[in-house]
Simulated scan of single mutants.
Amino acid sequence: MATDTAHSAAHSTLVPATHAASRRLTHVTHEAFGPLWSPDSRVLMLGSIPSPASREFGFYYMHPRNRFWPVLAAIFDEPTPQGIDARRDFALRHRIALFDSLVECDIDGASDASIRNPVPADLRPILHGSHIGHIFCTGATSARYFTRLCRPMLDDAGINMPMTRLPSTSPANAAWNLPRLAQAYLPVRDAAESEA
């Protein structure tokens, strides 16, 4: 069954970390909005954990300078979708599922390098309930946690799913401009349009 709880709450659960070494860390969970997918999804795109902007708006890649949505618009030759409803419709129409490698961690702002106590996402229900044939991780951190924490769960379930690491669309990844990112993301379009 398709799951889309993007509007269930405005904010993720935030609990200040208590130990002294983590004074700047915030405990973040993925409870405010879950995975976006449908039985017709062909690809699953994974970030690491929602950024503060995404947690504020309750949807994926909502920082105004993140290039995720402009990149997807470019590879499908469409205008960039604006707003949560348009972005949800865009992803589902192009058979793209969205989630993260982690559902819980301690993190300082949006700094993936600061992540502590990561808890992996259980991707098995999404993969069992859809036609997803390929996973794409949108950055090194997502790929690392997928490989280290999510992949063993899939292996134990007998799910042999290919994963491709893509460059991050974060504004922090300034070395990659929009045309270069779009070129790197073309395999997402090819996999999403596949009937295999």
Rank of each mutant, 00 (worst) to 15 (best):
C105N: 02
P179Q: 10
D77A: 15
D77K: 09
A97K: 06
C105T: 13
F68L: 11
L154R: 11
P52H: 04
W69F: 08
S8Y: 15
A97R: 11
S51R: 13
A6C: 12
P52M: 07
S101P: 10
R55Y: 02
R55P: 00
A32L: 01
R55D: 12
I132L: 07
A192M: 04
L186E: 14
R151W: 14
L166A: 03
A2F: 03
S142C: 01
P162N: 03
P50M: 09
S38K: 10
L166E: 00
R116H: 15
T29G: 00
D108S: 09
R165S: 11
G129C: 03
V43E: 08
D85T: 14
H131C: 11
I107H: 00
P187H: 05
S41N: 01
G133T: 11
E78R: 15
I75D: 04
R151H: 15
R95V: 01
I132F: 01
I49H: 10
T169W: 01
H131P: 00
G158I: 00
R144S: 05
I126K: 00
L72A: 10
M1H: 11
T164S: 13
L186A: 10
N117F: 06
L149N: 06
F33I: 00
D40R: 14
A17K: 09
G58V: 14
L127S: 04
P162H: 01
L14I: 11
E193D: 09
A53C: 12
I135H: 03
W37F: 15
R189G: 13
D122S: 02
R93D: 14
V188N: 11
A191E: 12
I132P: 10
I75T: 01
I75L: 04
L25S: 00
P152Q: 12
M1Y: 07
L149D: 06
L186H: 14
A182D: 04
R67C: 01
L186W: 04
E56Y: 11
I115A: 04
D77R: 08
I159A: 03
L36A: 15
W37H: 14
H128E: 09
R23L: 07
R116D: 13
Y145R: 03
T5Q: 08
H128F: 05
I49W: 08
R67F: 07
I135P: 06
A143Q: 15
E193N: 12
D100F: 02
